[in-house]
Structure formats: structure tokens, C-alpha cells
Design a protein around this nucleic acid. Structure first.
Lengths: 330, 330
DNA sequence: ACACGTTATGGAATCGATTACACATTATTT
DNA sequence: AAATAATGTGTAATCGATTCCATAACGTGT
């Protein structure tokens, strides 16, 4: 590997001068500069960011901790993050927590040891241990998707989105509305969306049969199971189903199809996420677009502001959302 | 930031001893060790991988260049890569080429400057410039998805997969089979799969109406367009459609639905990719599973072998595939 | 002719780790 | 008891860059 010293020797100057050429700083004569550039091109020298980082204490790398790599949401978010970061010369160091809080915490340590300039946490469940870990970290942390106390966060408006979905059903005349949620330890998806559903129902003075409220775990199969339980448990079936994610909604649709229940004639369905899937299932699924890519970009922007110390305080940014009305809705 | 020197001072030993404790190497008395560990825990010291890398010339980071981040294939592949790499203490530095060869080449330079231990290229089009760049790079490179000359590659068996799909149609009695491909500059997806289609047709002595052969660009919309062109251009429509990707196939299905052509009664459809989408469209799409995650894992394994110099020569690894027969097929 | 600002260059310290080597001290073998 | 081996620790060089500081040559205003 050719180093700055080699370039210095070959071009007959000191490594200080080479560094000046590299960074376009200080005084360098036109002649020296040309000679150095020449040698650099001949040798194919690429300066070591590592050595540079060690000295300057800036790595130009941002760690991104994901709950799971291969989900549509993750990949959209990462796309958005990268789009913004690469504009500022930053790279992404990936860390997959795989839905395991221990790993999440471990990744904070690992990313610190790599001296990343900041850490973006795409969050799910927020435990006390995690919050403590974040406090101990000495680089800026920005969270996406969950409101982490004391940490700048980019948030989806889960409450209002879920409220709007439920209200939409109500406005269309539905009185019996079922709900498929996830565990409430997930504050955003589990707790907030559920609360909004209940609030909307209560506001419209609509009754909620406990059997209409079911729980799944983020995949299609569990949505199917939840739907079947709902049909089995309730004396009177709902006429509409609000599932907190598209995959749960599509699972519910699978169950309904198998039961011969017509969508949307006998049952309306809505999800959240605007997944690719939602557009191409039959009937196409009404859903909520969370603009994940935009959310990623905003998170990255916030991170850069923190790094540049433009923003000192912790900020909370609420994303907007958009309802997408398709055929699954009567 | 607390450094190894601080730890040394606080525990009253030299930094050599601290390093020994850190790496569990050489001789250290039990007493000294305990003292050092104690101080480390008190201070929350995290060793700098950067400084370590500079000295040891190993960064334990692998650069991954993706053609596009937010695709199902990419995220599955990255998942597989990470699964294997993290087992060996490696991290992934992400680089998004966004379907731009210039960027791809630029990323090679950038990753080199970060002194990654290896580069995994998830490839699409292979240009001469790219091959030259790879040659100039001085770290191991492994390609995934395309056969890059002189570079170890993990390959999908595009030819046989496509041949099998076409043959399956033929075996089921189809005589007029349409093809929706992509540009042949993509050797694997564009060229190989097309060649296999023609070879299978020829082997069965079946005629191919030029209008049956259409081209799209990796998205659903273009699949739809290609299908409409095929119907418009051909005097006699095919009874089966082989699209080289699931998204193209689903686009074709959309077109057929709009035209009121029944799948599979009037037209059978197959794709390649085993996307989530393929399972939940109606009718469910028959396709080929390329086991992307496994491919990612294998690529990572190959990379590690190269880094450890277990494998000196360039190797070509061909992945297996599996046909998934679903409702879109008569 | 003197002082001073501008331009050009290099020496040497520094960032935070690893590691070769030297030097004690203690334990074991003969 | 002397020779040898095992154990424990520190000094200093090193990795590849940046950057502070010193020094020198040169022009120019007075």
C-alpha cells in the first residue's frame, strides 16, 4: 500500500506539502503541486481515511442500527438516510439488531469502538437499559420511529394516522370495527395505534367487543391467525378491520378469502405502511403512507445538524402521513 | 474520549500491559489484570478500532456495493452477508451505486480509502472500466449475481433456471410462449435468461413470433407495458408468459387483468425471484426461488476465505434454485 | 537599505493503539 | 548451587495521516 511518505519521496517534497496538496490548504507552489498530483496519479495513491480520522477525530461514518435488515421499511429508510448522508461525504456502517435488545446494546459499543461520528437508531422497543446505553454513548444519537427520552427523534404520527383510519371507517358507516395490533411494548406501533383506535371508537360512541381486538407479530401468518380468532371469538363479526401494519392486514385478507368472506362487500380492511404488497394484492389494500424514505432523509439531516452543532438541544420531528384509499374499503 | 494511556496511568501500569489485558496476549499477572479491568469498567473505556486498524492493517470492515438499496433482493442479500460476516467480527460499510456505473467505480475508491478488508460487489452491468477498477483495487473482491472475469463470483444459475421455466410451460402443453426480458447489457438477467428461453423453444421445435419477445426495465409498470405491446403486436397471442423477474411478471398480470384475460385459464404466467409479492398477488405467481439470503451468506464466506488466504485462486460458485409452482400456471 | 507581509517548505509532535525487544524476577531442572 | 526456563513489565518504534511552528526567499512600501 502506497502511503503519503512514498508520495513525498517520489515527488521530492515533504509529506507536509503532500498533505497540503491533498487538502488544498496552505501555500503550495504551482510546480510542487503539479509534481505531487502527477506522482499520485502514477501510483494510484489513495489516502488512508483511517489515519486521517485518528488525527482529526472525525470518521465521516454514521452507524445505523436496524431492528431487522430485510424488511421493506428498513430498506426504504436506509435508502433515505444514505441519500442524505452521501451528499455530505458520510458513509453508513450497518448494524443489525435482529429484534434483540441485547444485540442493540452491543452494537452501540461496537459502533463506538469504530469511532463513528453518530448513531442512528431505527427503534422498536425502548427499554431502560437501552436509554442508559444511549446516555453513556458520547456521540450524537438520533432515533427514528420511536420517541426515545432525551434523544432527538424523528417520529411517525402513529396516533393521528390510526385515529384517521378508524374515523374513516366510521365516516363510511361502519359500526363494528375490528383491530389487529401488536404487543404494546412497541410504544409506537403497539400502544399509540391501539389507543387511537379506542379513542376514535369512543368518540363516535361505538362499542368495542373485546373479541374484535386481536394481536399479532408483524408477519402475514399472524395476521391470518388473528383474523381467524376474531371470527371465531366474536358473536357478531365486525364489518371492518384495522390492522396496524400492511402485513397483518394482508394476513387478515388471506383468512377472509379462505373463509369465503368478500372484501370489501362483507368486510373492509385497512393497514398502515404503504408496502408494495398493498398495491398489488387483490383487492388492493387501503393503507397509510408513512413516507419512510423521507423519514430516513430527515433523520440524516437531523444527525448532520447535531454533528455540526447547529442543533444543540434534543429535537422531536413529527412526520406527516397520507391515506391511500384503494379497493379493500367500502 | 478516554484512551489506553489514561487506563495505563489510572491503573499504574504501562500501556503495553493494558494492551495485553485487552487482547489476552502475553504474560500479565493476575493482580495487574484485575486492576486494569477495574479501571476499564469504571471509565467505560472502549478501545479505538481505528488506531488498532492503523497498526494492524486490518479494519474488520467489508464494503458492500449495491446497485440499489431498497429492493427486496438487495435487502435479502445484505441480510445474508451480514449474518455471516458478523459471526467473524466484520461490519458492513454500505455503498449505494444507484444503478450508476460511475458511482460504482467511485465507491471502489472510497471504500479503499476507508481501508476495508474486502469489497463485495452486488453486480448488474459489467463494463470494461469496472473490470479495470477491480483489477487496480488491492483488496479481495467478490461479485454476486454476475460472472466478473478474474473475480471470485457467486452466481445464480440463470441459464438453467430460465430453461426450466420455459420447459415447464412446454411440458404442460404450451406451444406459444411469450417472453418479457430486460436489456442484454445485464448479462445474467438480460442475456442468459433470454438465451435459455430461445434454446428451450428451439429444442422443442417451437416457433417464436418476434412480437412475443418484449423488453422492460425491472419495474412493474414496464412489465405492464411490455405485455400490452405483446398483445397488440402479435397476430396470435401466446398462451403463456415468461417474465425474467417477478415484478415484470406482476406487471404483465396487471395488463392481462385489465384486458379481461383470465390467468391461468387463458394465459399462464411465471416470473423469477420468489418475491413476497409473488405469493400474495391473485392468482399467486409461479416463480423461481433464488435463495438470495443464502447467496449472500455464501458470498460472505467466500470473502472470508479470500481474506484468510484459504482460497488463493478466483472461484466461481453456482447457486442452486427452486421452482415454486403456484396458481398462475395451467 | 530596512522592515514587514506574503509565499513556500519542512521538521517534529500528535492521534491511539500494537509489538519487537530488553530486562528483571521467580520457578524449575540438573 | 548454578544453569535454564517461565513469567511479568516497560521502553520505544511504528502505522499514515494532520498541523503547529520555525525558517527562508522574495517583493514592496517607506
Amino acid at each position: 500500500m502506497v502511503t503519503i511518505n512514498d508520495i513525498a519521496k517520489l515527488s521530492g517534497v515533504s509529506r507536509t506539502t503532500v498533505s497540503r496538496v491533498l487538502n488544498n490548504s496552505g501555500y503550495v507552489s504551482e510546480k510542487a503541486k503539479q509534481r505531487v498530483v502527477e506522482v499520485i496519479n502514477e501510483t494510484g495513491y489513495v489516502p488512508s481515511e483511517q489515519a486521517k480520522s485518528l488525527r482529526t477525530k472525525k470518521s465521516k461514518v454514521i452507524g445505523v442500527i436496524l431492528p431487522k435488515i430485510s424488511t421493506e421499511t428498513s430498506s426504504r429508510v436506509v435508502d433515505g438516510i444514505d441519500r442524505e448522508l452521501s451528499n455530505h461525504g458520510y458513509h453508513i456502517l450497518l448494524a443489525n439488531a435482529n429484534l434483540d435488545t441485547d444485540k442493540e446494546i452491543e452494537h452501540f459499543k461496537l459502533l463506538q469502538s469504530r469511532r463513528v461520528d453518530g448513531i442512528i437508531l431505527v427503534a422498536t422497543n425502548i427499554e431502560e437499559r437501552l436509554i442508559q446505553t444511549i446516555k453513556d454513548v458520547n456521540v450524537p444519537v438520533v432515533a427514528l420511529g420511536q420517541d426515545v427520552p432525551g434523544v432527538s427523534s424523528v417520529l411517525y404520527d402513529d396516533y393521528h394516522a390510526a385515529f384517521d383510519v378508524t374515523s374513516l371507517f366510521i365516516k363510511r358507516g361502519h359500526k363494528r370495527i375490528g383491530f389487529i395490533g401488536v404487543d404494546e411494548t412497541d410504544r409506537a406501533v403497539g400502544y399509540e395505534r391501539k389507543k387511537a383506535y379506542f379513542d376514535a371508537m369512543e368518540k363516535a360512541r361505538l362499542n368495542v367487543d373485546p373479541a374484535w381486538v386481536q394481536k399479532g407479530v408483524f408477519d402475514i401468518e399472524s395476521g391470518e391467525k388473528a383474523m381467524l380468532s376474531m371470527l371465531a371469538d366474536s358473536t357478531q363479526a365486525p364489518t371492518a378491520i384495522f390492522a396496524v401494519t400492511d402485513r397483518l392486514a394482508i394476513g387478515a385478507m388471506q383468512a377472509l378469502k379462505k373463509k369465503g368472506i368478500k372484501i370489501p362487500e362483507e368486510m373492509s380492511v385497512m393497514g398502515i405502511g404503504a408496502s408494495d404488497l398493498s398495491k398489488y394484492v387483490t383487492p388492493s389494500l387501503s393503507t397509510v403512507d408513512y413516507y419512510n424514505e423521507k423519514a430516513g432523509t430527515e433523520t440524516a439531516k437531523l444527525m448532520i445538524e447535531h454533528i455540526k452543532n447547529i442543533t444543540e438541544m434534543t429535537r422531536k420531528l413529527s412526520m406527516s402521513y397520507g391515506l391511500i384509499i384503494r379497493d379493500s374499503l367500502l
